[in-house]
């Protein structure tokens, strides 16, 4: 019993070595980055492919990237978009997603971009949980 507790404690302290928020920040800035940092290559690659795929398809569908907030829906959209981290910054710098939504596919594209950001936040929190030892 005591040996098990000692083992668990040493595992947790091992998992918490270093800056525990680094995978969270890396995961937010680069999709899958938090998992790559923790050497979870397979999980990181799948997360990156899913989030990047969703973001790219959103742009290809002429989805809008929120630049400012004028009402409550814009604020929610902007919050979701900011979840994309550096992808958001890059798309704003390159002028991608700077469009008026005129067609149905563009509306879906806008949702794809927002949801990609939200999924990226979930992935970043998962990387943080792996780092703290809350998840294996």
């Amino acid at each position: 019993m005591a040996t098990e507790e000692t083992k668990k404690t040493s595992t947790n302290s091992g998992a918490q070595e270093g800056f525990v928020y680094l995978p969270l920040i890396a995961g937010w800035l680069v999709p899958g980055g938090g998992h790559f940092l923790l050497r979870k290559w397979g999980r990181g690659a799948l997360l990156a492919a899913s989030i990047l795929g969703m973001f790219m398809l959103g742009l290809l569908m002429q989805g809008k990237v929120y630049a400012g907030a004028h009402d409550i829906l814009d604020i929610l959209g902007l919050a979701g978009d900011l979840g994309n981290g550096l992808l958001y910054v890059l798309s704003r710098m390159l002028g991608l997603g700077d469009v008026q939504v005129m067609v149905t596919t563009a509306d879906w594209g806008t949702r794809f971009i927002v949801v990609a950001g939200l999924l990226n936040i979930i992935a970043a929190v998962d990387a943080h949980n792996l780092k703290t030892g809350r998840k294996s």
Binding site: R43, S50, A116, V125
Partner: peptide, 10 residues
């Protein structure tokens, strides 16, 4: 497909 992949992993 994309959402399920992220949900499954996380």
């Amino acid at each position: 497909l994309f959402a399920s992949t992220v949900f499954g992993i996380t």
